[in-house]
């Protein structure tokens, strides 16, 4: 009788462990499936004597059911000078004449920004533009006075929860005025 009770107890504990394992595996997969690298949330352009100080804030999103840690992130962006609005913002010839930034961070699973489940996390870069040639390329839109930034794309490597697997993802191109 005692053996039977112990056996049933062990089976109940095992069933709990199994259910928790399956749930985490499904959540892990769901988090990857709905992963989004987020997007550029804000950009401020501050005039300094030698040029511009540009502050870009990227907002990571996590619609998944487990927290994620962003270990490595890199993206390329350009400041559209709005000189030729007739051509698309990502026209290669136009991009060659604009000021571009390649921004990134390279951390690890213990130090990277953690995006909680269903939440967001931000990372900010500050860039000082002092080269006169570059400074000349940065201009606001003459009509609305906003600065237009195009994100050409990016790459992200992240961890889901404490699972020991680094997963690659993409940041999608975007364009907007700030």
């Amino acid at each position: 009788m005692l053996i039977a009770i112990g056996y049933v107890g062990l089976a109940l504990v095992s069933a709990g462990i199994f259910a928790a394992t399956v749930t985490k595996f499904v959540d892990y997969s769901q988090t990857q499936k709905v992963f989004s690298a987020g997007g550029l949330e804000n950009a401020t352009f501050t005039r300094i004597p030698s040029g511009w100080t540009i502050t870009l804030r990227w907002r990571f999103e996590n619609p998944g059911r487990l927290p994620i840690t962003i270990a490595i992130f890199q993206f390329q962006s350009v400041v559209d000078n709005r000189s030729d609005t007739g051509r698309p913002w990502d026209d290669p010839a136009k991009l060659a004449t604009e000021y571009g930034m390649f921004l990134s961070f390279n951390l690890d699973r213990n130090t990277g920004p953690v995006v909680p489940l269903g939440g967001t996390a931000a990372h900010t870069w500050t860039v000082n533009v002092t080269d006169p040639l570059d400074v000349a390329k940065i201009l606001p839109d003459p009509v609305d006075g906003k600065f237009y930034i195009g994100v050409l794309g990016g790459r992200v490597w992240y961890y889901v929860s404490d699972v020991n697997a680094r997963i690659p993802g993409d940041a999608v191109p975007s364009y907007g005025g700030f």
Binding site: S14, A15, F18, T21
Partner: peptide, 25 residues
């Protein structure tokens, strides 16, 4: 019942060991 419970116990510990990242322990 005993047979089914044995399968549950063996599977739970196998999965937790084999796919350790997803297990609660």
């Amino acid at each position: 019942l005993w047979t089914f419970l044995a399968g549950v116990i063996v599977a739970a510990f196998f999965v937790t060991s084999f796919f350790g990242d997803y297990g609660p322990v």
